[in-house]
Design a protein around this nucleic acid. Structure first.
Lengths: 127, 127
DNA sequence: CATGTAATGTTATATTATTACATTAATAAA
DNA sequence: TTTATTAATGTAATAATATAACATTACATG
């Protein structure tokens, strides 16, 4: 799996070109001119891209963004600042937060696998 | 708004009685015998309960849990440990994490409003 | 008891996501 | 280079999640 397939590449490029998270059906509409025809195709591409760490799902918005790092693994300390006003999104890493979460998990005897961390607010431009 | 309405109470009680997050349509099926008839009614009750801090939405699962504290406000430091295996969920608060997140927001000039923090893994019983 | 707000009931529909199954492409092992 | 295997595709149908719209009823409070 060195290279992305056509559908994967198409979806990935669209996400990379966007400064906001995109919803699956918006991705579908945008890529229909390029040959993608059904939701299934979009979701399959997204699944793969997420697995590869090239795309993240924003759970609180049911939307998807291209990874802004080189390539995230699932085990990363990634989290998001999301602007309520302009929908801009910043992807961040902070080992301190992940360490703290790990510590908490240990206290409860839980084995940490991965996380969703999404902060809503207003970005510097909007407040 | 001292007391919950019938629909709100019905949905709240069901969630309180459950040790797992419940999905909206499961709530609907369970409460149909009690008089609730449509998705709208369930979602309306959930919206209100969330607003009151009596229920939380688990974004990564599109499911809902009763707040295990007295009553969370939205500004709380709440987060969740979710077991992938048994679906058990633990609601926690940790001011340190929230402080850290706030600090990060400040660095980016963002104004923190609220957050979604969901940790997946396996609980002490399942690992 | 009038008035405004909150909640309800009901129907329809929008949005998000998956299943199922047949086919084609790509990879790599014999 | 054929064959086996895995990955990706195409297509249609449908499941699961959530909201819109509008008419009505309950209810707090001034």
């Amino acid at each position: 799996m060195l290279e992305l397939s056509f559908n994967q590449e198409t979806v990935h490029k669209l996400l990379q070109a966007s400064d906001k998270p995109l919803k699956a059906y918006n991705i579908l509409f945008e890529t229909q001119k390029l040959g993608i025809k059904s939701p299934t195709q979009v979701y399959r591409a997204l699944d793969k891209l997420i697995e590869l760490g090239k795309v993240h799902k924003i759970e609180s918005k049911n939307a998807f963004v291209a990874c802004s790092k080189i390539n995230c693994s699932n085990q990363n300390s990634t989290f998001f600042l999301i602007c309520d006003t302009c929908e801009n999104i910043i992807e961040l890493e902070d080992q301190k937060i992940t360490d703290q979460l790990n510590k908490t998990c240990e206290q409860y005897g839980s084995k940490y696998k991965n996380h969703t961390i999404e902060i809503s607010g207003t970005c510097s431009d909007c407040n």
